[in-house]
Design a binder for these strands. Structure first.
Length: 833
RNA sequence: GCGAGAGUGGCGGAAUUGGUAGACGCACUGGACUUAGGAUCCAGCGGCAGAAAUGCCUUGGGAGUUCAAGUCUCCCCUCUCGCACCA
């Protein structure tokens, strides 16, 4: 810092600057979004947080990424909707309330208040007037309405079934919420349990959810693959095998109808009802024992480990409807009751599992498919031949290729009425009943006379009571709270019992994106005009951990709401960005690992802008970000450097003509070139793939160029002031979405009346960005040997001559003959010798 | 096992369509200014050899295509994530 300068140089007082601008944005409602058909809309959404207490680095990163995009799109002229809210129902609130002897609502509200202050402190450009908290009756009443509507359409049903029960959370979990046999939330083992529960018929949308994946070109391939796998569609044949000495048939599902002539045994799941057929056979005891043992083993097994294949003869056989052969039935531990029909036609020659099983129990292997060259020999085979091929030993189908045979065999089965083409899915219906308190009540009523009936619409919402006492058992007070469950039947007005289960919290997050379009609307869940204007979400941002759970449910909900006439879109999120995790010392930040960095401390020390800058600079958004305290300091240093640069050069902004003079010296020509190249680079990085890290480094280069041209002393003035001013302004504008408080402050300080937040994004001038001279690389046999500085547009033959004449090139060519010369425009000359 | 993604200096990470590998930043080293420096500025910074000029090597490994390969093709290795007895 120059002591001699008369003007006192200010320090970068981030605290005062950030408070000042946050206050202005709030009072001026800078980021309020209103429908405006005259402008293109842009709906930017980040996954809303669970109000757990305080924000963490993952939030900071997620919302910083979103905020840059929101601010950038505004500057590009879009009418941007950028809302924020709270995914406020859920178990942590309930557990915390038990621990602190308070109400989950109180705990949640407190957290929301605190976290809201934190988010505001980060300077995120949300329209806070659209804030949503899903635990408020004004929100969940509509969810209850949707539930009733879905019930009326047959998309909701109740059944007794085996569910996933978490012993620690004391509630049922959906299939999507069981990760490797453990609870997604608390990681404790999940056990099966027979219970009543409410289900949403997501399987009714399986096909559309699957085909929709093909339309989601703005989603990461990885997420689409996960969704496709989860839906798990497979096409095949359902076929009945008549059981010997019984009226029953054993129905199987196969994706390989072409191997039906190779069936040598049947295998059924231990839970299969036809296990009962062993009664009265000599094997009865053995089968019962096996089933008992297998169930136990399945419960205790490590989900990563496959069980040793095992089975037992049922004592009964069935008949292959194609060959008439007698086929023994086995109960096998590897057959899943949940998939297909729970029964499999086993073809050891062409299925590896069946092969292993057959080898173990000495069951014959019958080859019915041969590869194009030769055929496997059942006597010497060591593994199943699973590829498609040509059918052999298959009656009238012999000689057909697998693909043709599939069609022919299905057609035959259908004609003979012994089977039919069938498509199965891995996807199961979504179990949404939760046995805990802190969730939206399910608006259903059980009446002895009328059965289970929905609550009348005008009685909604069914409000979650506040006068409750939670106890350490974790059991929901709703089950025993008479004032809640005692009610009248909406049909017959007789006394009835209200459903006391609550809804899965993923129900709230499945449609919040639509409610943001009209958060205060009271005439219905969604204002058609508003949702038609804003939806779909143009850019959605969140963690990959929701790849299946939330993102699949929300897609399902979009289709349901569309079919119910509430919205007009098929897919809720056009583009999806899955941001990476924040890592410290090689592991995800977590309390248990003790490697968390608290955003508050960093903001206190460096300010929000520095934290934003670093979290965007350290890695591209989709990758994991390794947190580095030193790196944060580097970002802070950079901002200080720009701050000093602007302070030292404030003179540039005092009445200098903004137009650029025609005749500039070399230096004054180089700077605008760099300026416009930077504008081009930053713009394309922001447009193309949100690679803020390279956008920031490009701006740093421009700052470096500025510092070396005009210095931080402002005294070395060989450069044209208008040129320097243009470059300096570009730095502030380009950085403004990333470090908004900082840029607004300097913008104002350099005499601008307007706000950066309302300013259009700069257009780069291709003429100004054009280089006058280029470095052309001279290669000999592909190795760089020399460089030439030439004027842009030097013709190829001239380049070739210059390269061949080049002294250094000559020394490499020596006595060798030049065989070929390749000239690449504006890039290089390669001399082949 | 299946599917997706990744492998580049001490570190985070850059490199349109194949065309100067290592931008930008961190760390480090030397110097300047200084009462001080954890501020700031200047210089250096992939490896090997060399005083230097410069040369050779270098994008997980190995082949190949090409005038030219981090980038394309084939094989292999490692890591991360997801699914996993799906019939």
């Amino acid at each position: 810092m120059t002591e001699g300068s008369t003007e006192k140089i200010k320090r970068y007082d981030f605290k005062a600057i950030e408070e000042k601008w946050q206050t202005r944005w709030a009072t001026e409602k800078t980021f309020k979004a209103e429908e405006d058909p005259s402008r293109p809309k842009y709906y930017l959404l980040e996954m809303f947080p669970y109000p757990s207490g305080r924000i963490h680095m993952g939030h900071v990163r997620n919302y910083s990424i979103g905020d840059v995009i929101a601010r950038y799109k505004r500057m590009r002229g879009f009418n941007v909707l950028h809302p924020m809210g709270w995914d406020a129902f859920g178990l942590p609130a309930e557990n915390a309330a038990i621990k602190h002897n308070t109400h989950p609502a109180a705990w949640t509200d407190e957290n929301i208040e605190y976290m809201k202050t934190q988010l505001k402190g980060m300077g995120f450009s949300y329209d806070w007037d659209r804030e949503i908290a899903t635990c408020r009756p004004e929100y969940y009443r509509w969810e209850q309405l949707f539930f009733v509507r879905m019930y009326e359409k047959g998309l909701v049903y109740r059944k007794m079934t085996t569910v996933n029960w978490c012993e620690s959370c004391l509630t049922v979990l959906a299939n999507e919420q069981v990760i490797d046999g453990a609870c997604w939330r608390c990681d404790n083992a999940v056990v099966p349990r027979e219970m009543h529960g409410w289900f949403l018929k997501i399987t009714a949308c399986a096909d559309e959810l699957l085909s929709g994946c093909d339309t989601l070109s703005g989603w990461p391939e990885k997420v689409l693959t996960m969704q496709r796998n989860w839906i798990g569609r497979s096409e095949g044949l359902e076929l009945d095998f008549p059981v010997e000495g019984s009226d029953h048939s054993l129905r199987i599902f196969t994706t390989r109808p072409d191997t039906v002539f190779g069936v040598t045994f049947m295998s059924i799941a231990p839970e299969h009802p036809m296990v009962a057929l062993s009664q009265g056979t000599p094997q009865e005891q053995e089968v019962a024992e096996f089933v008992r043992r297998t169930r136990q083993a399945l419960q205790q097994k490590d989900p990563d480990q496959e069980l040793e294949k095992e089975g037992v003869f049922l004592g009964r056989s069935c008949r292959n409807p194609f060959t008439g052969e007698k086929i023994p039935i086995y109960v096998a531990n590897f057959v899943l009751m949940e998939y297909g029909t729970g029964a499999v036609m086993a073809v050891p020659a062409h299925d590896q599992r069946d092969f292993e099983f057959a080898t173990l129990y000495d069951i014959p292997v019958s080859v019915v498919i041969r590869p194009a060259d030769g055929a496997p020999d059942p006597e010497t085979m060591t593994a199943a031949f699973e590829e498609p091929g040509i059918l052999v030993n298959s009656g009238k189908f012999t000689g057909l290729a697998s693909s043709e045979a599939r069609q022919a065999i299905i057609a035959h089965a259908e004609a003979e009425k012994i089977g039919s083409a069938k498509t199965t899915y891995r996807l199961r219906d979504w179990g949404i009943s939760r046995q805990r308190f802190w969730g939206a009540p399910i608006p259903m009523i059980h009446c002895d006379a009328c059965g289970t009936v929905p609550e009348k619409e005008h009685n909604l919402p069914v409000v979650l009571p506040t006068d409750i006492q939670l106890d350490a058992s974790g059991r929901s007070p709703l089950h025993t709270l008479k004032s809640f469950y005692e009610t009248r039947c909406p049909e017959c007005n007789g006394s009835a019992r209200r459903e006391t289960d609550t809804m899965d919290t993923f129900m709230e997050s499945s449609w919040y994106f639509a409610r943001y379009a009209c958060p205060q609307y009271t005439d219905g869940p969604l204002d058609k005009n508003a949702v038609d204007y804003w939806l779909p979400v143009d850019q959605y941002i969140g963690g990959i951990e929701h790849a299946i759970l939330h993102l699949l449910y929300a897609r399902f909900y979009a289709k349901v709401l569309r079919d119910l006439g509430y919205i007009s879109i098929d897919e809720p999120f056009t583009n999806l960005l899955t941001q990476g995790m924040v890592i410290k010392d090689g592991a995800k930040m977590s309390k248990s690992k003790g490697n968390v960095v608290d955003p508050n401390e960093l903001i206190e020390r460096y300010g929000a802008d520095t934290v934003r800058l670093f979290s965007l600079f350290a890695a591209p958004p989709e990758r994991d970000l390794e947190w580095s305290d030193k790196g944060v300091e580097g970002s802070f240093r950079f901002l200080n450097r720009v701050f000093r640069l602007v302070q030292a050069n404030r003179g540039l902004f005092n009445g200098t003509s903004p137009s650029l003079p025609e005749n500039l010296n070399d230096q004054s020509r180089a700077l605008p070139r760099k300026t416009h190249q930077t504008i081009r680079k930053v713009t394309s990085d922001l447009d193309r793939d949100f690679h803020f890290n390279t956008a920031i480094s490009a701006t740093m280069e421009l700052v470096n160029a500025l510092v070396s041209h005009i210095g931080e002393d402002a005294q070395d003035q060989s450069i044209d002031p208008a040129v320097a001013r243009e470059a300096l302004e570009a730095v502030l504008v380009l950085l403004s979405p990333i470090v908004p408080h900082f840029c607004e402050e300097l913008w104002e300080e350099t005499g601008h009346q307007s706000r950066l937040s309302g300013r259009p994004w700069p257009e780069f001038d291709p003429e100004a960005a054009k280089e006058e001279q280029l470095t052309i690389v001279v290669q000999i046999n592909g190795k760089v040997r020399s460089r030439l500085l030439v004027d842009v547009g030097t013709p190829d033959d001239a380049l070739e001559k210059m390269a061949l004449a080049d002294e250094r090139a000559q020394s490499f060519i020596g006595e060798n003959t030049v065989r070929k010369v390749i000239v690449v425009k504006n890039k290089l000359v390669n001399i082949v010798i």
